[in-house]
């Protein structure tokens, strides 16, 4: 059988969580094996009812107050003890990768994280992300079952819509979490402050790189962002220089964003930055260097100094809006 951890937020499957179950379902069908889906923590039962697939559904640790990665891995290990598991899959999210790392350590098994594709055989062939998806690694996973894999976001479309799959009965797993398992538990959750437009939710992001030149240069970007209802982002060099706080950083070690429009001002387009903004529907790059890598990766390009171009856009926006004769308030 194939076992898949369903990631959820208070009973609602996450995007990558639903995708991993779809991926696992395809793998199970290919092997002619049943798919068992496991959800853990408070809301697990509700998540399973909403889940897109699964021949057998398990809910566990529903009485645990918060997320506890080692206890979650223990629950998966209990399911492995029944035998007959070909592979365990989880989403390649922070929690999915973390729980699987505990499971892999506990069983001293290899773990292939952030897989893009998996082909069973002897050995199993798989492709996984390197450099956060800027490079692919083709790998072989030999050895005995179970194989431990996590699935990267976007590797597959989610499985069938909720309710279209045969709804299995949700089985409650017995809890065997021990004191060591419960040494690492979320003690408290602090909700977001709710100030301004967050990068993750913004429809438009105005982002600046080294070309902005300093902290004060971001005033221009703030002004444009204000007119567009946009969030302000930046590249890594900007946060290393202390021009902007790290929470504004877009990229491999910052935030991954997916706005309708990403306006990159004075950003060269290193791969570590591009993995953070490549999910934008459109990218507009403004750069003095026509040969900067970002100019070929953008949908629209303007060659020029952002210190001249951005104020001109601001002025043009104001002119157009005034010409519309509409009072914004």
């Amino acid at each position: 059988m194939i076992l898949c951890l369903l990631e959820h937020e208070a009973g609602v499957p996450t995007q990558v969580g639903a995708e991993a179950v779809g991926f696992a379902g395809t793998l199970a069908a290919r092997l002619g094996e049943p798919l068992e889906v496991v959800a853990l923590g408070p809301g697990a039962e509700a998540a399973l009812v909403r889940a897109p697939a699964g021949d057998v559904l398990h809910a566990g640790l529903v009485d645990l107050a918060g997320y506890a990665p080692r206890a979650w891995a223990h629950a998966l290990a209990d399911l492995l003890d029944r035998g007959g598991v070909s592979a365990v899959l989880a989403p390649g999210s922070e929690r999915g990768n973390e729980v699987m790392a505990y499971l892999a350590a506990r069983r001293d098994l290899p773990l292939a994280t952030n897989c893009v594709s998996v082909t069973p055989g002897d050995p199993w062939a798989l492709t996984r992300n390197r450099w956060a998806g800027s490079l692919f690694e083709d790998a072989e996973l030999g050895g005995d079952a179970p194989r431990l894999l996590t699935v990267t976001l976007g590797a597959t479309r989610p499985g069938p819509e909720p309710g279209t799959a045969p709804a299995g009965e949700v089985r409650r797993l017995p809890t065997h979490a021990d004191t060591d398992d419960l040494r690492v538990v979320v003690g408290e959750e602090v909700p977001p402050s709710g100030e301004g437009v967050s990068l993750a939710d913004a429809r438009v992001i105005v982002s600046g790189g080294r070309g902005v030149g300093g902290e004060e240069g971001f005033g221009l970007l703030e002004e444009l962002a204000g007119l567009l209802g946009a969030a302000v982002g930046c590249s890594r060099v900007v946060t290393s220089e202390g021009w902007r706080p790290h929470r504004d950083q877009v990229g491999q070690t910052g935030t991954r964003v997916a706005p309708d429009l990403y306006i990159a001002c004075g950003i060269s387009g290193a791969i570590q930055h591009m993995v953070g903004c490549k999910s934008a529907k459109k990218i507009l790059a403004i750069n003095t260097d026509p040969d900067a890598p970002i100019m070929a990766k953008a949908d629209y390009s303007v060659v020029g100094d952002l210190h001249a171009v951005v104020p001109a856009i601001v002025e043009e926006l104001r002119r157009v809006r005034a010409g519309e004769g509409r009072c914004p308030w």
């Binding site: 490549k278 990218i283 507009l284 100019m295 070929a296 990766k297 953008a298 949908d299 629209y300 390009s301 303007v302 060659v303 020029g304 100094d305 001249a308 171009v309 104020p311 001109a312 856009i313 002025e315 043009e316 926006l317 157009v320």
Partner: peptide, 19 residues
């Protein structure tokens, strides 16, 4: 990734096309 870049111009003069 299939992105075809459309040049919108050079310098401040590009602002009209950008908007």
């Amino acid at each position: 990734e299939a992105r075809r870049t459309v040049p919108l111009g050079t310098g401040a003069e590009a602002a009209t096309r950008v908007v």
